[in-house]
Amino acid sequence: MQRALRLLECVAGHTYGAPAKQLARETGLALPTTYHLLRTLVFEGYLRRDKGLFFLGEAAERLSSSGARQKRRTTFVEALARWRDVLGAPVYYAVYREGEIDVLCVSDTPANPAVEEWAAFRETGHAHAIGQCLLSQLGEEERRDHLARHPVRPVTPYTVRDGHSLLRRLDRSRRAGVVTERQEYAVGTVCAAVPVTVGGTAAAIAISLPAHQVDRLLPAAQRLQAEGSRSVGSLALSISI
């Protein structure tokens, strides 16, 4: 296994391919061993041979792509954690795809726990900042389709009461760029969300705070909007979440 990996690493260093003798010399492997390993790696799809030169094959490229994607994902999670610590609040990342709200990543701490999903986020987009931010980015037809499938209903005593009121709020939110809600999804919690540019996908990054810290909500959201949403959005696009 180690010798095969050495060969793969060596081939990866030759953009224009390399012959078996050169690979044997550079890896320090005996030529017969090199030929045997090369044949096996070609058979398994990790290498391909063309005119006596060896190149990385599709299987190796898939491994490389998967590793790079995982590295980008780790960087994205670290970015959310950094903003969590800077803002002193849980940070959420969500997208709207295939007609549904999808919270893909949450970064919190024991001291600043995330909001418990006591009512399905997908079905209560009208009641939380994440959902309202995502819905505000949709076209009118897509938005009405969503609300037809997930109609406005009371979640707490503070939830927006009807679809018309929600639609007016969504229009205001689109212009403001920051969405806030106060105890509409969970009593005792206030939330804010800002839109994130991820190609053609509606996306949002959000924070939540205890209701007694409501004075912190808008300044923290504005800071997230000014400093964090662009970098988080570029990372999100790079990993195609």
Rank of each mutant, 00 (worst) to 15 (best):
51 K>C: 12
110 P>Y: 10
31 L>D: 05
110 P>D: 09
143 R>T: 02
232 V>I: 14
233 G>S: 06
127 A>P: 01
153 R>A: 10
16 Y>H: 14
167 L>Y: 01
83 W>E: 06
239 I>L: 01
232 V>E: 00
88 G>S: 14
4 A>Y: 03
49 R>L: 11
163 G>Q: 13
110 P>W: 08
1 M>D: 06
168 R>K: 07
180 T>L: 15
33 T>C: 12
128 H>K: 12
173 S>K: 05
105 C>S: 10
40 T>H: 15
113 P>Q: 11
219 P>E: 14
201 T>I: 01
162 D>F: 10
161 R>C: 05
48 R>L: 14
119 A>T: 07
169 R>E: 04
85 D>V: 07
45 G>A: 11
159 T>W: 10
101 I>A: 00
31 L>Q: 04
157 P>H: 07
229 S>C: 12
164 H>C: 03
200 G>E: 00
18 A>V: 07
130 I>Y: 00
150 H>M: 08
65 S>M: 14
107 S>E: 06
91 V>S: 02
171 D>E: 08
77 V>E: 13
36 H>L: 11
75 T>F: 15
226 A>P: 10
107 S>G: 03
57 G>L: 08
210 P>I: 00
62 R>T: 11
241 I>W: 05
171 D>P: 02
56 L>C: 01
5 L>M: 05
86 V>L: 13
61 E>C: 07
239 I>F: 04
164 H>E: 13
25 R>E: 14
39 R>C: 04
202 A>S: 06
237 L>Y: 03
164 H>N: 10
105 C>W: 10
236 A>Q: 01
65 S>R: 15
73 R>E: 12
20 A>R: 02
236 A>L: 03
37 L>F: 03
216 R>D: 04
21 K>N: 13
90 P>T: 09
117 E>D: 11
132 Q>V: 05
98 E>G: 06
240 S>D: 02
116 E>Q: 15
75 T>K: 15
231 S>K: 09
159 T>N: 08
62 R>W: 04
223 R>I: 09
37 L>N: 00
181 E>N: 11
184 E>F: 01
39 R>I: 02
241 I>S: 05
88 G>I: 07
76 F>H: 08
65 S>I: 06
217 L>T: 02
153 R>F: 06
78 E>G: 08
51 K>L: 13
2 Q>R: 11
89 A>S: 12
47 L>P: 03
93 Y>K: 01
148 A>K: 09
133 C>M: 09
129 A>F: 03
35 Y>F: 14
20 A>I: 04
